[in-house]
Computed example of a mutant assay.
Amino acid sequence: MRIYFTFEPRPDLREPLVEEFPQVDFVFENGLSNNELQEADVLVTYGEDLNDENIQYATKVKWIFVASAGIEKMPAQAIIDRGIVVSNVRGIHKTPMAESMLAHILAIKRALPWVYEQQKKNEWSKKAKQTELRDSTALILGPGAIGSEVGRLLQAFGVATIGCNRSGNEAAYMNEMVSFDQLAEALPNADIVISVLPKTEETTHLLKADHFKAMKNDAIFMNFGRGNLVEETVLMHAIRTGEIGYAVLDVFEQEPLAADHPIWTLSNVIVSPHISSHSSRYVERSLAIFKPNLEKWLRGETDVENRLDLSRGY
């Protein structure tokens, strides 16, 4: 069996993998080669480097392991037509992303951006507008692995959590659950609104102008899912008119964000360039999911963990 990685793990991660599976011919490259695709039985990729043309070369590939949670940039129909099994690393982002979200929330609550600016100006001032996180309420759109982890951390700080998903069914570390249909009614109760929703047809522009009008004027809005959640003009209006107090944005409709985009200049916005999931342990955690799946695959089992339905987008 030939397994083609379109990225090269660090030696301390790559070498144990090769030793553990001596029956496998591993190929590691930084980039995608159609020549290698023609020979591969399994493809390991971040997903963004694949297109329809590539799939035409991948005539032997039966399984694509995506070392990412997002699959919206993959050539879904071409993969579906070929009947290729696709799985991903859903769940590995929960630690770095939850820590990133909590860090931003605490920074805003404790006025850290203001403190840093005062230091740059060599100014000793005690006029920081600081508030407490305790006894606030957070509404989390998409309380899956990531949303539940940030819910767990927030509850430890004395925050009440409201989860919101399509069904309104129970989710871990949520004090209360609502469905998408009940979202507008729940928003006035939230001090913090966090989205970690994936990109699907249903989530595209799910948040509309009326949703932002329903939020508290001092609410912190955080989008760490996908930029399709809200139309850019709607979000900009909500920020500029004070319908919300603060926005922390890790994702955008168009990425990378243009250098001349006006959102860079807004004082009540934190721009995080889609890095909240980054961690020195990212590939390590990806391989921890890949290895047991590979053991299954070598035994002829196709019920790999985190198997995806590309027709649904997740």
Score class of each variant (00 low, 15 high):
A156L: 12
G147D: 09
E19G: 08
R240H: 09
S87C: 06
G151C: 12
A288K: 14
P16M: 13
V234P: 05
M236F: 00
Y314V: 11
T233V: 13
S100L: 03
V89Y: 11
Y57C: 06
V61E: 03
D49F: 04
F21K: 00
E15D: 14
L153K: 12
D81L: 07
E8W: 04
K73Q: 13
P188D: 08
Q119S: 11
N88I: 10
L154N: 03
F290I: 08
D49L: 11
E132I: 10
L298I: 14
N223S: 07
N54T: 06
H261T: 04
V89A: 08
H211P: 01
D309G: 13
L229R: 01
Q23V: 14
K216Q: 11
P113T: 02
V271D: 08
V251L: 01
L133N: 09
D303G: 12
G144M: 05
F5N: 08
P188W: 15
T137D: 09
V193F: 01
F224G: 01
G91V: 13
E8G: 02
T161A: 11
V196W: 04
T241Q: 10
R166N: 11
R285I: 03
P11A: 07
A156R: 10
E20W: 13
S33L: 13
F28Y: 15
N268T: 00
F224C: 06
N51G: 14
W114A: 09
E149H: 13
R10E: 14
P16E: 09
L37T: 02
A128P: 02
P143A: 06
S33F: 13
L154F: 01
R90Q: 09
N54D: 13
S279E: 09
D25R: 14
E36T: 15
L206H: 06
H278T: 15
K94W: 08
G83S: 06
I244A: 00
E305Q: 13
G70E: 02
S136W: 05
V251Q: 01
D41R: 12
E39I: 05
S195D: 01
E185W: 03
L112Y: 12
W124S: 14
I55N: 05
V234Q: 04
Q182A: 15
W63P: 06
N189I: 00
A58C: 10
Q155R: 15
I194W: 00
N30D: 08
K216T: 00
A214P: 05
E243T: 00
G300I: 07
K127S: 10
Q254M: 08
V193D: 07
N122G: 03
G168Q: 08
A78R: 09
R281V: 08
D12C: 09
R307E: 15
R82L: 03
Y282M: 11
H205R: 15
S148I: 10
L287Q: 13
V234T: 15
W124M: 12
I105E: 00
E36C: 15
T203I: 10
A209N: 14
T265L: 11
I55G: 03
I108D: 04
Y246F: 15
E176F: 02
Y282D: 10
R110A: 04
G245Y: 03
A171P: 08
K208L: 06
M1E: 05
K73W: 12
D191M: 05
K121F: 03
I146G: 02
T45G: 13
L106M: 10
L13W: 14
R240W: 00
I270K: 02
E243D: 11
I84W: 05
I270H: 04
F21C: 01
